[in-house]
Design a protein around this nucleic acid. Structure first.
Length: 453
RNA sequence: GAGGUUGUAGCUCAGUUGGUUAGAGCACUGGUUUGUGGUGCCGGGGGUCGUGGGUUCGAGCCCCAUCAGCCUCCCCA
């Protein structure tokens, strides 16, 4: 017998946790559906030809590869062993676990281009796997929760995503959050203006850490990446940007007016902001943040990030616009914009702030005590009628001691117990015990159903 | 990939300068008028001290290796 253990970086979700996770996922699903994003699921495993080369060299290392079935080593020859794992891999593995939801989505769009209604809006909530080293808040199996719209570059989509994010967090009960928006074109413009044209991705990686490591460390990092002191001096204007959105936009216009791409980014951001306000959305928790960069290199337009303000945790959602999502699969010029919600982090935030509503617990509401064979028999029609009325009910499946049955109800957090022995069967009036208060009432079935509904 | 830290009961952890049969709390289980739990009282089961070597008369404790968890950096969600 071997000791039971979990595979590294994986978790069980016990029923009590699942109830809470389902509340989050269901809330998100409902909002996605309301905005016209319909669910898509793709397989856990994809051909390695789909996955490899999409996430950089490091990404390929982090892919979980699946060994071929049967005699997976049959094609290996001595020469392969000498050349090492790179030579052997394609001979022993042709499939891998998906690393994110974006690449499988791109594959799906490219494969089904003739059947889909464009612009195509999809939501996708599934686990992904990474052979990363686990640490706090990072797992080898975790859920991604994405919504994207592809096949249009309308800025209405950006505005709708902001609206949607707003609704998700409001419905979850997270009141104090901030949606930050920026535009990659503005960052490109900044790179241009400070004389570091074409180096915006390095610039982004550094700037993205601003609120984490501070201004001086960012400057240090830029120097290490061979930005000149002239570059950095020209960048100083970035640190004095006003917070007020209108003031911020005109400050940027002034700073970047000689950069075509920068001006375009400002115009886009302005339009998104304008659209959001036309939706009538209270703008207090939307902030323009020109230092928001996000590490991912494929963003080309708007960038979003959501932070929970009452909890010391990173962002709980992020996303942006990307061009040419499906180009690698032979379908060029498809622009899209999407958002990804961090379910695990949202869970932590809600747990810390005690935001899970009691009714989200999905629990059995009443346990019928099983005394003896007569009592068990009398319970069956009652059980059915409770369930027919939508009440989650269960009968203890054995004729056990009351203590044992009460302990069961307590442990499972079942709020009511129905006591039904020979006396009750005769009278047709049953003992409904409230497990929290300890009080007990004698009621008919109809009265019990009424109480529990 | 680099660094740090911790592995003792199902869980959280004590365990002295190395010295008899390794402890506690919680959990589990039985009893406490066999139709009333969660807060009482009494009892019980459960550990080759992560694994493999080494030092020693003697190792949970010291040394080496290895595996695993946790944390930081890189990167990411």
């Amino acid at each position: 017998m071997s000791k039971p253990s979990l595979a590294r970086g994986t978790r069980d979700f016990a029923p009590a946790v699942m109830a809470k996770r389902n509340f989050i996922l269901q809330t998100i699903r409902n909002v996605f559906r309301k905005f016209g994003f319909l669910p898509l699921e793709t397989p856990a495993m994809e051909n390695l030809s789909v996955l490899m080369g999409k996430y950089g060299d490091e990404g390929d290392q982090l892919l979980f590869k699946i060994l071929n079935s049967g005699d997976f080593a049959k094609d290996i020859i001595q020469n392969d062993l000498e050349k090492g794992s790179k030579q052997i891999l394609p001979k022993i593995s042709e499939k891998g676990l998906r690393y994110d939801l974006t690449v499988p989505f791109a594959r799906f769009v490219a494969m089904n281009r003739h059947d889909l209604a464009f612009p195509f809006k999809r939501s996708q909530i599934q686990p992904v796997w990474r052979a990363d080293r686990p640490q706090k808040g990072r797992y080898r199996e975790f859920y991604q929760c994405d919504a994207d719209v592809v096949g249009t570059d309308s800025l209405l989509c950006e505005a709708e995503i902001i609206l949607m994010l707003n609704e998700v967090f409001e419905n979850l009960g997270i009141k104090n959050f901030q949606i930050k928006i920026n535009n990659r074109k503005i960052l490109s413009g900044i790179a241009e203006i400070i004389g570091a044209n074409g180096r915006e991705s390095e610039l982004c990686v550094a700037i993205d850490k601003l609120d984490k490591i501070g201004r001086e460390k960012v400057e240090e990092e830029l120097l290490q990446h061979h930005f000149t002191s002239g570059n950095i001096e020209a960048l100083q204007k970035l640190f004095d940007i006003p917070e007020n959105p209108e003031a911020c936009l005109s400050y940027l216009e002034n700073w970047l007016n000689s950069s075509e791409i920068g001006s375009k980014g400002i115009a886009e951001l302005e339009e998104v902001f304008e659209l959001v306000s036309q939706f009538g959305l209270e703008k207090s928790n939307i902030q323009i943040d020109p230092t928001l960069a996000r590490g991912l290199s494929y963003y080309t337009g708007a960038i979003f990030e959501v932070k929970a303000l009452d909890v010391a945790i990173g962002s709980i959602s992020g996303g942006g616009r990307y061009d040419n999502l499906t180009g690698i699969f032979g379908l060029p010029d498809v622009s899209g914009v999407g958002i990804s919600l961090g379910v695990d982090r949202i869970f932590d935030v809600m747990e810390e702030l005690s935001l899970f509503p009691a009714e989200s617990l999905e629990n059995t509401r009443i346990l019928l005590v099983n005394f003896d064979s007569d009592s068990q028999k009398a319970c069956l029609p009652i059980l059915k009628s409770l369930r027919d009325n939508g009440i989650a009910a269960e009968l203890f499946p054995e004729q056990a001691k009351m203590k044992k049955q009460f302990d069961y109800a307590n442990k499972k957090g079942i709020p009511y117990v129905l006591i039904l022995g020979s006396n009750e069967i005769k009278s047709g009036v049953y003992g409904l015990k409230n497990m929290e208060s300890g009080t007990q009432e004698n009621l008919t079935i109809q009265e019990i159903i009424k109480t529990l509904c």
